[in-house]
């Protein structure tokens, strides 16, 4: 395909992305150097780096950042481990029954995240099923505290992100050549050794892929934390995105919020750049 034709075909898409993603990002950078509230929304006031300094000195920002890191380090390994184990089991089931299981297992993935969070929360309300379980079996009341809200956030995140890891790993298992498995069998490998030396190496690139995608998705988690904490600072369970939202729309410091967004963008580049380089190499190699 010629360069001219390429641009004819991709012009609408490139224009949309330029006008609505690249341009806003430039605007965001510019706004982050301005003092901007709802009062002077049409007349931003340039103040240089002061927004950035203010964010970096903000204790609540660092608290939310620490919680985000803790959250990522707990949810990503958990969802991958559970997803991998269930994928292994699903691989053992005959294709007909498999479809039924997949329908159920996909449900957390397709439910609107806000709605899923709401449903999850219902279980823990005083009238909820799990709250009753706590009272009846464990003989203690389930109350919302800092620890329990944080646990809830992690549990819910694992609940609704596992299907993605599960289906991805399951698809990867389908491409495992039967001959490799048979060779391992002839060598006398038991099941654990097969997983360790055959399945895992085969899935290695997928594991990296799922880990990277999950880290980036968990980093920008917003919906479920917003709903579960009800924006109540008592639980100290804000993620960076939720705090950023509050600075923008509750405190109404738009300039500072933009500066915070830029800092979070810089922070995710640590993961993003290796990911982009890896994709670049794959694409060049794939030609």
């Amino acid at each position: 395909m010629k360069r001219g034709t390429f641009f004819q075909f991709s012009a609408p898409s490139i224009a949309t992305m330029t006008i609505l993603m690249v341009f806003p990002l430039v605007v965001a950078i510019w706004l982050s150097f301005n003092f901007l509230t709802f009062r002077n929304i049409n007349a931003p006031d340039f103040i240089g780096w002061r927004n950035y300094i203010e964010v970096l000195q903000d204790a609540r920002f660092w608290q939310s950042f620490r919680f985000t890191l803790l959250f990522i380090s707990m949810t990503v390994p958990l969802q991958m481990l559970v997803g991998f184990l269930i994928a292994l089991l699903l691989d053992q089931v005959s294709p007909k029954i498999r479809g039924v299981y997949v329908t159920f297992v996909l449900l957390p993935f397709i439910v609107v995240p806000v709605v899923g969070t709401l449903m999850f929360k219902q279980l823990f309300e005083p009238s909820g099923l799990i709250a009753w379980f706590f009272r009846a079996i464990l003989e203690q009341r389930f109350i919302l505290t800092e620890a329990s809200v944080k646990t809830l956030i992690v549990t819910h995140a694992v609940w609704y992100t596992t299907p993605f890891a599960l289906i991805t790993f399951f698809a990867g298992l389908q491409t495992l050549p039967q001959s490799t498995v048979e060779a391992a069998l002839i060598d006398g490998a038991n099941r654990l050794q097969q997983i360790r030396f055959v399945t895992l190496p085969h899935l290695q690139s997928l594991v990296v892929f799922v880990a990277l995608i999950s880290i980036m998705d968990m980093y920008r988690i917003f919906d479920s934390v917003f709903v579960l904490t009800e924006q109540n600072p008592v639980y100290r369970a804000e993620t960076v995105m939720v705090y950023n939202f509050q600075v923008a729309l509750t405190v109404q410091r738009l300039g500072k919020a933009n500066a915070m967004a830029m800092i979070t963008v810089l922070a995710i580049l640590v993961v993003l750049i290796p990911f982009l380089l890896r994709t670049y190499r794959e694409q060049v190699g794939g030609k």
Binding site: P24, M260, A261
Partner: peptide, 10 residues
Amino acid sequence: ALPRMAFVLP
């Protein structure tokens, strides 16, 4: 992969 917040505010 960038956080939504970077686009939403502008």
